[in-house]
Simulated scan of single mutants.
Amino acid sequence: MYKDFKEALKGINAINITPFDERKNIEWDLLSKNIDFLLENDIKAIYPGGNTGEFYSLTVDEVKKVTKFVVEHVNGRAKVIAGIGYDYKTASELARYAEDIGADGVMIHQPLNPFMLENGLVEYYREISGSTTLPVVLYVRQKIITINVLKEVLQIPNVIGVKYAINDLLSFAEIVQEVNEDIVWICGSAEMWAPFFFMAGAEGFTSGLINVDIKRSAQMLKALKGMQFQEAMKIWKEVRPFEELRAKHDNGNNVSVVKEAMKQIGLSNGIVRAPIASLTDEEVNELRNTLVNWGLITEILT
Rank of each mutant, 00 (worst) to 15 (best):
Y2K: 07
K3V: 07
D4H: 09
F5N: 08
E7W: 01
A8P: 03
K10S: 13
N13F: 14
A14M: 09
I15G: 02
D21T: 07
R23W: 00
E27R: 13
W28F: 11
L30W: 07
L30C: 07
N34Y: 13
L38W: 00
D42Q: 11
I43W: 00
K44D: 05
Y47I: 09
Y47L: 14
G50S: 13
T52L: 08
T52D: 01
G53K: 08
F55I: 12
L58T: 04
T59E: 06
V60G: 14
V60F: 09
E62Y: 08
E62C: 08
V63S: 09
T67Y: 08
K68E: 14
K68V: 02
V71E: 00
G76R: 14
G76Q: 12
K79M: 13
G83W: 02
D87M: 04
K89A: 15
K89T: 11
S92D: 07
E93Q: 12
L94K: 13
A95C: 11
R96Y: 00
A98N: 09
A103D: 11
I108E: 02
Q110K: 11
P111K: 05
P111M: 05
L112Y: 03
P114T: 07
M116S: 13
Y124T: 06
Y124P: 14
R126Y: 08
E127S: 13
S129E: 01
S129T: 10
G130W: 01
S131Y: 02
T133D: 03
P135K: 05
P135F: 10
L138H: 04
Y139Q: 10
V140H: 03
I145F: 15
T146E: 02
L150Q: 01
E152P: 07
N158T: 09
G161K: 01
Y164S: 10
A165T: 01
I166M: 10
N167S: 12
N167K: 12
D168T: 02
L170N: 10
S171G: 07
F172H: 04
I175C: 03
N180R: 10
D182Q: 00
I186S: 11
C187W: 00
G188D: 04
W193D: 07
W193G: 04
P195I: 09
F196T: 04
F198N: 02
G201L: 02
G201F: 02
G201Q: 04
G208M: 02
V212W: 09
I214C: 08
K215V: 11
Q219I: 08
M220Y: 13
L224D: 09
G226H: 05
E231Y: 00
I235G: 03
W236R: 15
E238Y: 10
R240K: 14
P241H: 13
F242K: 01
E243Q: 10
E243V: 06
D250F: 05
V258E: 03
M262K: 14
K263C: 05
K263R: 15
Q264I: 06
Q264W: 00
N269P: 09
V272K: 04
R273I: 06
A274R: 12
S278V: 11
S278P: 01
L279G: 07
T280D: 09
E282Y: 14
E283I: 07
E283K: 15
E286A: 14
R288K: 15
V292Y: 06
N293G: 14
G295L: 11
